[in-house]
Simulated scan of single mutants.
Amino acid sequence: MSVTLDLSRGAPPKLAPKPNLSGLTRAGLAQALVEGDICAPDKAKMRAEQLWRWMHHRGVTSFDQMTNVAKETRALLADRFVVSRPEVAERQVSADGTRKWLLRFAPGIEAETVYIPDVGRAGALCVSSQVGCTLNCTFCHTGTQALVRNLTAAEIVAQVQVARDDLAEWPSDKDDRRLSNVVFMGMGEPLYNLDSVADAIDIISDNEGLALSRRRTTVSTSGVVPELKALGERTGAMLAISLHATNDELRNELVPINRRYPLKELMAAIRDYPGLSNARRVTFEYVMLKGVNDSPAEARELVRLIRGIPAKINLIPFNPWPGSPYECSSWSTIEAFAAIVNKAGYASPIRTPRGRDILAACGQLRSESEKLRASERRKLNAAG
């Protein structure tokens, strides 16, 4: 009888990832320092303020860079926590200056974020709140990708930090900053991830950190009615509504969440949005689809629908993507639509398509960052 000895070693146990301090609110950061035996409770607030400024004002990615923290404390921090960035899997720059980053947070967990120059006071960052989306809006490329998971507050904040890294905008009080606004208009439905979105806005807006004003932070939703009031109360953010139709029949098709929360319920919730006023208007986003929602009659119905609401209407030329079933309305049609809305007293800017050549425009984001042949890119540009 022979005996075989198995001398192979089993796979080492997987270690849990270290918590990323960058995604914690001030209170959460102080608590983590106490629970991690970094400091006593009576010292936690002071230590948290130190780390906060290094992470969110200076933008450091290593505890070794925190020079006013004792060396022994830095070693303890490095042993138990990280202040790292996600991997930038791909970086693209459009001919018009738009920048897009594909960020890999973990294997198979990717999302895109886009910087658009000359939007808002200086430039806007379009951040994602989910990997994929559940809403299946028929005109949106992101909607063709199934939901993978919600992003954490740390992963949302990291999108701002990566943009700041690339734009060389540390420290946060640097003069002539190019990043002034944040819009939650990337991948996902923010109100299906409200806890992380609210924590991220708390971190992003802190005056001793990233210092991006809540008044310059806009959250766009397709209309998750039960969460609208909580969004206003918890974040103080500006509200944008992905509308795109003026009647339930068409909106049911374009924005399927309307079947659950029809226009009557949605408009009532918007009228009750905390802080809504002439100084804090809601933005209605309306993508212009040729022969679908772009007639003069629909422009007049839009005016009727939003009557009495402090609002502006962003008219968005449809941005094509591979396999999309729609075409963009002609420029003359869009201008005629805008004229009707303007005459009724509502600002109705026509959004200039940005980043189409790198699939970074509104409705084009998808975490696979599909590559287009040069000939296909030329077709997309010609369509604009």
Results as ranks from 00 to 15, higher is better:
265 E>P: 00
227 E>P: 15
290 K>C: 06
218 T>V: 11
266 L>C: 03
291 G>S: 02
192 Y>A: 11
194 L>R: 12
307 R>T: 15
291 G>I: 13
245 A>R: 11
289 L>A: 01
318 F>R: 15
276 L>P: 01
241 I>T: 07
217 T>R: 06
247 N>I: 08
198 A>V: 10
195 D>R: 08
320 P>W: 12
199 D>V: 01
279 A>Q: 11
222 S>K: 02
293 N>R: 07
291 G>L: 13
287 V>R: 15
298 E>F: 05
267 M>T: 09
221 T>R: 00
220 S>H: 14
250 L>H: 02
287 V>F: 11
221 T>H: 03
211 A>C: 13
223 G>I: 14
325 P>E: 09
230 A>C: 08
269 A>P: 15
260 R>M: 13
253 E>V: 12
186 G>S: 09
287 V>L: 10
246 T>K: 13
276 L>T: 11
212 L>D: 10
279 A>H: 15
281 R>P: 15
277 S>C: 00
250 L>V: 14
238 M>G: 09
294 D>H: 07
246 T>C: 08
302 L>E: 01
212 L>S: 03
200 A>N: 01
194 L>M: 01
229 K>G: 10
276 L>D: 09
208 E>G: 05
213 S>F: 01
310 P>K: 06
248 D>K: 06
254 L>V: 00
264 K>I: 07
299 A>H: 03
263 L>K: 04
264 K>A: 15
312 K>W: 01
248 D>I: 10
306 I>C: 14
298 E>I: 07
300 R>C: 13
231 L>G: 05
198 A>N: 06
222 S>D: 08
215 R>Y: 09
216 R>Y: 04
254 L>N: 13
316 I>C: 00
305 L>V: 03
305 L>G: 03
303 V>K: 00
207 N>E: 05
194 L>I: 03
